[in-house]
């Protein structure tokens, strides 16, 4: 069996499934002077998935509710791309399970393990060894649509 390419495993609603909106951009910029040898050359159309997804099978999408991360620029109704294969480090924004709920917070590993809301009205969650929590993955992108 050949390793599947992104196109082989199309699933409706998953961004890697989109054929990619063709946004062909000419590379050459407008400049006075000598013509660039690359002027006629058009690079491959841009695909937003390239920006958001590096590991498709491990990437999931979630929708934000609430304002606990508003000071990090994460608003209610934003869509986050979560890569479960990326190891989360101190300072990363992560998706975690705490008390049976999915939550988005900033991970702090020193001086103690904490999940930090980026909203001064909220208190950090200190994680102890026997707490029921799990770091699901690292948030690798954000999508927001405007009206």
């Amino acid at each position: 069996m050949q390793p599947p390419t992104a196109r082989d495993i199309e699933i409706i609603g998953r961004p890697e499934a989109s054929a990619g909106v063709a946004v062909a951009l000419a590379v050459a910029s407008v400049s006075a002077g000598f013509p660039s040898p690359a002027e006629d050359y058009i690079e491959q159309a841009l695909d937003l998935n390239d920006l958001l997804i590096t590991n498709p099978p491990a990437t999931f999408f979630v929708r934000v509710t609430g304002t606990s991360m508003i000071e990090a620029g994460i608003h209610p109704d934003d869509i986050l791309a979560v890569d479960r294969s990326r190891e989360a480090r101190h300072g990363d924004i992560v998706i975690a399970i705490v008390n049976g709920e999915l939550t988005v917070k900033e991970l702090a590993t020193t001086p103690v393990l904490r999940l930090i809301p980026r909203n001064s009205a909220y208190e950090p969650i200190v994680l102890r060894e026997h707490d029921d929590f799990e770091i699901i993955g690292k948030v690798t992108g954000l999508v927001r649509r405007f009206r």
Binding site: I11, I12, G13, R14, F60, F61, V62, R63, V64, T65, G66, S68, I79, L80, I95, E101, L102, T103, V104
Partner: peptide, 14 residues
């Protein structure tokens, strides 16, 4: 819900 195949059904995080 179709958590992974429908934009209107993806899981919510707080």
């Amino acid at each position: 819900p179709a958590y992974t195949t429908n934009w209107n059904a993806i899981p919510c995080v707080r």
